[in-house]
Design a binder for these strands. Structure first.
Lengths: 237, 237
DNA sequence: TGCGCGCAGAATGTCTACAAAATGTAGACT
DNA sequence: AGTCTACATTTTGTAGACATTCTGCGCGCA
């Protein structure tokens, strides 16, 4: 349990605004707040010990990052998901993930690799200790960090948007009772390690192959859940 | 002059907040506000007849879209550009533009095509009447609309970010005295028409080829401007 | 009984005023 | 003369109160 993003008493501390942002992100990623839910401004301002203006600013920011959707004179809602979202996700994700990973392999410094390994250590721990939220959280952090290492302002926006739904898809289709799924989580963790190695070696081609396999694993998992009997399901591509 | 986005007296009207957003976007796209410039909250609130809180909300929103950059306790600054930006842009732009255009070709309805043609009419007018800002504005609108028709929430964020710098690059390297450049603007306009036709015919392959040629034209223009004397370009901070 | 109108409650949007942080400047000390 | 420090100014951040808009319920009417 390395992270405590969702502390119950968040109304204290030096930087309550950052706490609000991080906590909301975490709750949305882990689906503690379900897609489509409404966010009440006063409730949040009371929870985090802020007045409404800074809360509203945070909302605008989160909306820009794709976590929530705003409409005039209407409450903020967590970005919704649909069957269409799944299709769109697996259609675009390979392109963006590959671009980010290849660029990361080209640009990564020693410090970047060290940072990546640190995140991956936390991710591995979460997988081994069956900490579902921690796994979702550090998986997000891992891929986001790869995107930051890529150091290209034009890939990051879509990558950020994809990662939100990547996390939520991972949570939706996660079934703890399934032994095969557990094995595949460990497989995903191993893939992370290999991706780091490929990036460290500046081997963009290998990094690309690995990230593609990584996404295919997610997609297969999801398809397996949605269509256990081997039904044809068109997942784009 | 079909658009009046930058009306001098913006402090009136029913929706001053939308006016603030649109005007700022327009000014940044056309570089009426240079990259790296600071935006003063009180000045904007006075200009648009608003108080600071809604202005600050708009700032957060624009920051999320990539127009400006925010730092704690520091004034908002228009997103800066550098030589690195140019490289990054032409590295990623083809990928995103192609994805958006192909998806648009697959999804476009009759109404979508009509909307595109309408925008393109305004763009063509701007090109023929040498309305530089109008050209930049409607070019942005055109490609943004294509992205909206693509109807994929994961391509749009990066496309939006790219379009900001696409507009600004177009302005930076625009030289009205150059006859060859004028001809290439008309060529770009013709390409728009062809892209619409390809999308209308659901011909994704042709749409892809056209959008690639469209970007190559921009890139060639820029290289032509940058390379002749072999001088390094200073892009204002 | 079903539909539409209108009012009451609640939530969002905005404003003014105050607090805190950062910057620029002037003065004093080394 | 240079630099550090303390203060004053400016600007950003926040709070609480007010205005406006939406929602839901109940009443009245066909």
């Amino acid at each position: 349990m390395a992270h405590n993003q969702s502390s119950p008493e968040a109304g204290v501390g030096p930087d309550r605004k950052a706490a609000l942002n991080n906590t909301l992100r975490h709750r949305i990623l882990t689906m503690q707040i379900a897609p489509g839910s409404v966010l009440d401004e006063v409730a949040l301002s009371e929870e985090f010990g802020l007045s409404r203006p800074p809360v509203r600013e945070a909302m605008r920011q989160l909306a820009g990052e794709g976590f929530i959707e705003l409409e005039a004179n209407r409450p903020a809602r967590v970005t919704s998901m649909s069957y269409q979202s799944l299709r769109d996700f697996f259609l675009i994700a390979p392109m963006i993930y590959v671009a980010a990973t290849r660029l990361a392999a080209e640009h990564a410094s020693k410090a970047d690799i060290a940072g990546l390994r640190e995140i991956q250590d936390s991710f591995r721990d979460a997988v081994h200790s069956n900490d579902v939220d921690g796994r979702v959280f550090y998986n997000d952090k891992f891929h986001l960090r790869v995107g930051e290492i890529a150091n290209n302002a034009y890939v990051l926006p879509s990558l950020r948007r994809l990662l939100i739904d990547h996390a939520r898809i991972g949570k939706i289709f996660y079934r703890p009772s399934n032994a095969r799924m557990l094995e595949e989580l460990h497989e995903a963790s191993r893939q992370h390690d290999e991706i780091i190695d490929a990036i460290a070696n500046h081997d963009a081609d290998r990094a690309e192959a690995l990230i593609r396999a990584h996404l295919d694993l997610s997609r297969k998992n999801m398809a397996m859940y949605a269509a256990p009997e081997g039904m044809a399901i068109s997942l784009g591509v």
